[in-house]
Design a protein around this nucleic acid. Sequence first.
DNA 1: TAAAATGCATGT
DNA 2: CATGCATTTTAC
Length: 677
Amino acid sequence: MKPDGSESSAALNIARVCIDSPLTHLDRLFDYQIPDEFGDQVVVGCRVRVRFAGRLLDGYVLDTIATSEHSGRLARLIRVISAEPVLSPAVARLTRAVADRYAGTLSDVLRLAIPPRRARPEKLPVGEPATVSGRPDTQVWERYPHGSTYLDALADGRPARAVWTLRPGEDWPARLAEAAATAAAGGRGALVVLPDVRDVERLDAALTAHLGADDGRYVVLTADLRPDERYRRFLAVRRGSVRIVIGTRAAAFAPVADLGLVAIWDDGDDLHAEPRAPYPHVREVLLLRSHLENCAALVAGWSRSTEAAVLIESGWAHEIAAPRDEVRRAAPRIQASGDDVEQSRDPAARSARLPSLALRVAREALASGAPVLVQVPRRGYVPSLACDRCRTSARCRSCAGPLGQASAGSAAASCRWCARPAAAWECPVCGARRLRAAVSGAGRTSEELGRAFPGVSIRNSGQTAASGVLCSIEDGPALVVATPGAEPVARSGYGAALLLDSWALLGRADLRAGEETMRRWLGAASLVRSASAGGQVIVMADSGHPVVQALIRWDPAGLAARELGERRELGFPPALRLATMTASAQACEQLLASLVLPSSAEVLGPVPLTDERPGYHGGAACAEGERPVELMVRYLLRTPRADGAGLAKALHAGQALRSAAKATEHVRVQLDPLDVG
DNA sequence: TAAAATGCATGT
DNA sequence: CATGCATTTTAC
């Protein structure tokens, strides 16, 4: 207050700055004097350059204040990088919450949230937001109980939260476009995050169909944009020129003004898990956002994750799902076939390693002029080899790495770790000398299918396929071999889908195997015509398996509830909050000893990580006769969900002690990682 | 990477 | 036990 009683903004000449440093004990704000000559350049949310412990570092201004708590002399800001307030107050709160949730630092999260600065796009004029108007035809939403009620809530700007499990055959891009447009027509912002660019492209097309191609109505944020363009679009969002944002992972942090809806498509896809520290998951980021910004949330997919099941069980979200008879009407006919292929009397079935039921269904569909989808679980040719007689997996004699076959051209098996050829292999268990494919990859499968279906055109789709990932295919008889997530859409739906090598998916020791298998199967089955239109799905698995049962009944909700029950019994996420610590035994124990954990916390471990080799990127040969020794261990820490914040806080404090003590070895801390258990 | 704090050998 | 110089620590 000035003597005359008026507020003076000029008095706020101290900037509170978040320093761009990876050191955990520096994860707090530092005060700097704002030199007069910078004047109004310094705004909350802008980037600045400061001298910190001698060196020049970048930082963000989180606040401007009149008096500092700091007792010593304040240094002055060196430079204002730009007056653009790239960090909005809402995103500042969000990123802090994400850092706290994941025991990470604010600066690590800000690096994920804000794209690198580019000078040119900042010079562009600020555009006015295009108005989005109209309401979608609510008839399709009325097919879901609570569906049109939810849409009403979006239109009115109410913070309705739902887990939406789609009816088979649903036009999901159109529905998500409608949901986003409805929120925007109500005058608020909408944000939809999808796992990969192909899904983003589909929603992009649906939004264009719904709103027109005008860039002013919505914006697409993906990591593969060129830096200038990425920053331009980010700025358009930050400046409020656009209300609807769709994109991949990093878009979860987009500074959408007056956010009304956050939505995630296919939240079980592991692409939603950020691989950089502090490893936040898009679902958690969006749920935090829904909470902090008091906006609607939508978790949508064919399948249902156990995390989504928790949202429903806890009452946090409503369930939107089609009634059972609707589902039955729309779903293809699904059968399991656990036949022993080797016993089949049909030579074509034997050579394609397909049960005769699968072969018959595929032939019928092809004969009717429809494409057939063949889903194979792993990429590449033959990812690993096993003993032909007893199926013991084949390992390298010098380094114990898995043996594999690189391509059809190289007939000889070799080690996938040290690349030594595996000459004269002999099974250590039964002494047999012949190898067989343990899991048949996409490449091998299409070769075999070619022999079983002479004259039928075969298309491959996948990361490692020569033709890459196909987006869609034309109607007409063809076999489409695809890895999960790379299935092209068929214009009028597939006549049939064959889900191969299921045991490789279900047999994994991973706790998430059941949930993940269901997600992949439903992803393929959702592309098949309804049973009344002749659509059929054959899954190569034992029909007694609960996941197979759930698929046959098209019951992702039932499976998710069941899987969640199992997690409760085993004490794993999402039933509990879990953290992993990965480093050398010594470093882990140091950190562990310094932790002030909630009293409910339980420590499990150490588990030596023998077959996991962090830092290994292939190519290097290992020494003769010895296995690469990896000294890494992993500890698990778990608490009830209610103590999750305390667990993360304790880990953050422990990491801060380590960084302050200049510990050289880094301990990786991950909360609720996908790949443990 | 700048200043402050601390360590340490040396000379009285 | 001051003093000067080197090393370590702090961090606004």
